[in-house]
Structures are given as structure tokens and as C-alpha cells.
């Protein structure tokens, strides 16, 4: 039986777990608190595939938009 890896699908952009210092920097730049970030569920197939845990922030590098490359962040929730 084949194993499904969602991270290789062309609809799925690159997800990277953000280091804690980088999270602080990010929150400082936008002058926001952690709960103001967009969310992603811990049960999300991609979150499971990269082995991230609730409370961590994921950096998402989207391609194919008019900007060529766009970076967004999502907070993992239960």
C-alpha cells in the first residue's frame, strides 16, 4: 500500500515550523499577540506530516500568487 504524503502535492505550499525567537520577532514586527495570527488545526494532514505541535507557529511560503512568493504564518491550535 502506498503512503500518502500531503506535503508533495502541488496544491500544498511549503510549511516550515518557526523557531521561538523568530516568532517573537514576527509578533514584534506586526505589533500583535500570538492569538491574532491565522490558525491551523493540529489535526491538519500537513501539520501531522511535518510533526509540529499545538502552540507552535508555522511559516507558509505560498507560490504562484501575483507576487511570485508570499509568506504567511499560522498558529497551530488543538
Amino acid at each position: 500500500m502506498k503512503k500518502i504524503d500531503p506535503t508533495h502535492h502541488e496544491l500544498v505550499p511549503r510549511h516550515v515550523v518557526l523557531e521561538e525567537e523568530e516568532v517573537e520577532k514576527l509578533l514584534h514586527v506586526y505589533n500583535i499577540t500570538r492569538d491574532k495570527l491565522p490558525l491551523i488545526k493540529a489535526a491538519d494532514p500537513v501539520v501531522k506530516a511535518i510533526g509540529a505541535r499545538p502552540g507552535q507557529v508555522i511559516k507558509i511560503i505560498r507560490t504562484g500568487s501575483p507576487a511570485g512568493e508570499a509568506v504567511t504564518y499560522r498558529l497551530i491550535i488543538k
Binding site: K2, H9, E10, V47
Partner: peptide, 26 residues
């Protein structure tokens, strides 16, 4: 799960199903 299916490009027009299988960004 089928042999020979390209799991990197195969899609559906059911958005909810995509969410379940490939996640929120997909």
C-alpha cells in the same frame, strides 16, 4: 492508494475533501 496514480497532481473539485486529505492551505 492505487498503484500508478500520481499523488502530487491528482485533485478533486470537492474543497472539503481537499481540506481533509491535504490540509487547510491546499
Amino acid at each position: 492508494k492505487l498503484e500508478g496514480v500520481d499523488t502530487t497532481r491528482t485533485t478533486t473539485n470537492d474543497v472539503r475533501e481537499i481540506h481533509k486529505v491535504l490540509g487547510i492551505e491546499a
